[in-house]
Design a protein around this nucleic acid. Sequence first.
RNA 1: GGCCCCAUAGCUCAACGGAUAGAGCAACUGCCUUCUAAGCAGUAGGUUACAGGUUCGAGUCCUGUUGGGGUCACCA
Length: 606
Amino acid sequence: MQTENTLIQALTAAFQAQFGVEVAPAEITLQPTKKEFAGHYTLVVFPFVKLTKKSPEETARLLGEYLAQHMPEVAGFNVVKGFLNLELAAQVWLGQLAAILQNPQFGQVTPHGRRVMVEYSSPNTNKPLHLGHLRNNFLGFSVANLMAANGYQVMKTQVVNDRGIHICKSMLAYQRFGQGETPEAKDLKGDHLVGDYYVIFDKAYKKEVEQLVAEYQAADPTADPEKLKEKAAKNAPLMQAAQTMLRQWEEGDPEVLALWRTMNQWVYSGFNATYQAMGVNFDKVYYESETYLLGKKIVDEGLARGLFFRKPDGSVWVDLTSDGLDQKLILRADGTSVYITQDFGLADEKYADFPMEQSVYVVGNEQDYHFKVLKLVVNKLGRPYAAGIYHLSYGMVELPTGRMKSREGTVVDADDLMAEMVEIARQKTQELGKIEELTPVEAQQLYHQLALGALKYYLLRVDPKKNMTFNPEESIDFQGDTGTYIQYTHARTAAIGRRAAAEQVPTDPSSFGAVATLAPAESELLQWLSQYPKKIQQAGSELAPSVMASYAYEVARAYGRFFHDLSIFNEPDPARRSLRVALSAATGQVLRQALELLGIAAPERM
RNA sequence: GGCCCCAUAGCUCAACGGAUAGAGCAACUGCCUUCUAAGCAGUAGGUUACAGGUUCGAGUCCUGUUGGGGUCACCA
């Protein structure tokens, strides 16, 4: 990137010298030259021909000539139509290589103290995590890493949705049918146990509703079936009982609270195991049971300031029609707060805990509207954090048959999926038989790293905005454009490093400084490596792990060609041998860090 | 119905407004007595949903149409 800036500076001088025109550095962007053309960096001159008053070819030629004459870094240039392709001297690339190796933090932005909070995961405590949560967690964790690499002080949080009618449903089913079961006794993860009772509730409840509908229908055969169903859904004894339980919970009924604590504890220990397997973590956890009342103060504030209004039934609303949205309920007629009200309160709470410039919410795109409202309202309330709110909205993970539905049992469970992937990684690794020297514990760790690497990359390489399809029939690949491939490439660089250390090949810059020309595979690899700082910045500003994923893949490909085309230890020239070992080391360094930003482990051998 | 998102090779996905739209998978073909073949190289596969427009230049921006998804709950 340093080189790029130097070139841009030189280009402004070239515009001045050749055409007498001022062009600001910000207006000049260089792009890597496409493979099919000679050169390393390309300037598109079309935007400047109005200023230079020459043809695109002439403009490019004059700029190229100036650079070639005045810049020792520029070894040559060629012009194709309006494209000026610049070729850099070998010394520039060798300098880049030295810079990478001498700086273990290469590419990272020095800390500047600005703060960002990243909220992700945010599960309900009534069922285990599924594939959608995996996408969420991997995204959130990676975004947090990317922000840290961009110099931010990062606070990772999750908001646990631990109260509400859904929890009461599980509790009720357990109370009725549980017979004192525990996760330990049943040898089942707590979150799965509680989830099972949620399903049991749902089944029993459905049966009740059907029965009621039949009764209603018998009593009044002419009634609208839809209306009857609605009525039955409300009146079913199980639903009534769940509502009652929710009220008891809010009133602090000791028995209900005790059951609630016990079952939530089961869920948390289950979640913790899942988070550990996923390799994600949090700096602070917010529990909705502790924050859900906070929003009420804000309701009062909004009413006092005339931003909200009260309807005759006592409910409180905010009118957003002038912003192109609807009227939105803020407080129920019975005085209880709704989802968004809790989020107002929580937003204040978060800012009080950690005054941040940016606040990223990693939440599915079905809540786009919710976050639009949230941001709008806190902005109207004049909150300092309002402008920094960013909803990182991601699409659903769908099955070939459509959306996952817990009611239909088509949910892909996170624990199951990870376990399956580990098993496939184990089989595959043992078939290849390259890791005999690993202990059983190390081998098991490797299978896990490979499984999670494949899974994470699979979910992160896609643009978050888009819905994606997951086909359980076809297992996630370990070949081609995959996390495995990048891990494999890293392991290869590590193997080179081990042998180089054994043979005591020097790799300090002076050992390869005498190399005068670079092979294409060498300079192409170096060019990719030198892009790393720019990619970190891009991925950070776009909050896009996919940028880092495809970058890592490109580096791995460039190394694959390099590794295949050129021999390292059979190279007779010691300087060139050192260069290639150094290139391997630099590649390993960049890949390891890029993978780390994605939350993917980089094994030393596989 | 209003609003939001999406549509690119058989499949899964890429492509700061820039050159002949790229990868992987699947199919076919080569390459392991030499550093990790989970690799490398090649063949084949495209009217970028459709119609207009803006621009020196459009998969990308604008308008419309079609198709898919989401959302518009006193659920969270």
